[in-house]
Structures are given as structure tokens and as C-alpha cells.
Amino acid sequence: MSKILILLKKDFLLEMRQQHTFFGILLYVASTIFVLYLAMGQPESTVYNGLFWMIQLFVCVNAVAKSFMQESKGRMLYFYTITSPVQFIIGKLIYSTVIMLLMVILSLVLFRVLLGNPVLHQLQFLGIACLGGISLSLVFTLMSAIAAKAHQNAAIMAILGFPLIIPQLLLLIRLSRAAYGEVFREGALLQITLLLAGLDLLVIVLSVVLFPFLWKD
């Protein structure tokens, strides 16, 4: 446990020291949403919803990609000697989730400011967006590990991750319609939320089980 905390601290410290990468992604989010605003003004709720999740997907690929790609080969060897793979992957999962949640909140604000506000239940939408951010970042963390091990760029991460993220994305898009005022069958909301949480759990378990095989060279 304490080792996970140290690994997390190291990641956040690096983030603080190399602020250009963090702000780079912030700028990426902001300029994408601004371009969207220029392209379509203030869209109605279905388009708004679709755009929101697509932007989250692309932001996630960019934000989470570096969690493994920033680690050089020598440094990975160093981690190999001091921690276990399970601690390492858990640290990375938490780190990318936190980064992604920051991005989600920022894009929510920007969407609200630039693209208007068709959302009826703000808090609910915030909750769904956070849940979505967690789901996206968990899947893409392992994809990032695979892409980094294959010495590839972020493009392969997108190729690997996009088909896999479709179930979560569909569930999220469906779930967020509730926040736009669509009425669901009794219990359906809870069911979808639990399903998403279950999928997240599955992804975490798979990451923890599979990462040790990726890690040794």
C-alpha cells in the first residue's frame, strides 16, 4: 500500500515539475471544444451528448497515453527492481483516473460555457461524466501499457482501444440521456450504473492479472 502511494506521489510530482505536458492536454481539450463551438454553435441535446463523449474519448487517449509512454526503458528497469507489477499497475490506474477526472471536469465547464446547456440535471450529469472518465481511463491505461511495450505511438493505442471501449461508451451515452430529462424504466438507471461499475471492476481485475506478463522483458 505504501509503495503504491510512493509511486503515485512520484507520478504527481513529475506532473507538477513537467507542467507543459499537463497544460498541453488542457490546451488540447480547450481548443477542440472551441473548434466545435465555431463549427456548430450550440447544438441540441442528442448531438451535445454524442459530442461530449467523443471528446472524452479523444482526450482520454491523449491524457492517458503518456502514463506509460513517458517512462523510459531504464526507468522501467529501475521500477522492476523496487516494486511488484501489481503495485505498479494499481498506481498507474489511480494516476490516470485522477488525470482523466480533471479533464472531464474541465471539459464539462467548457461545454457548459461554449456549447450551451441542454442538461437538466447538472449533478447527475457530473456523476455520469465522472463514472465515464473512470471507465475510459481504466481501459486505456492497459492499452497504453501495451502500446508502450510494443514501442508504438498513441495511434496504435487508439486502434486497440476503440473497439474495446464501445460497450462502456454506449452504456454511458444511454445513461447520460437521463440527465437530459429522458425518463427511464423503473430501476433501469441503477441497472446500467451497476453494469458500468461491474465492467470497471472487470477491467481492473484483468489489468492486475495481465500486467505482470507485460512487464517482464
Partner: peptide, 17 residues
């Protein structure tokens, strides 16, 4: 090794889908 990891991960995501 890497493609086996992806294969296993993908399969277990695909089944819930």
C-alpha cells in the same frame, strides 16, 4: 507475449458486450 495479453483482455471485454 504482448499480443496474448491483448487477446485475453479483448476477449473478456467482448463477452460482456
Amino acid at each position: 507475449r504482448i499480443s496474448s495479453v491483448y487477446n485475453i483482455f479483448a476477449y473478456f471485454i467482448y463477452i460482456p458486450l
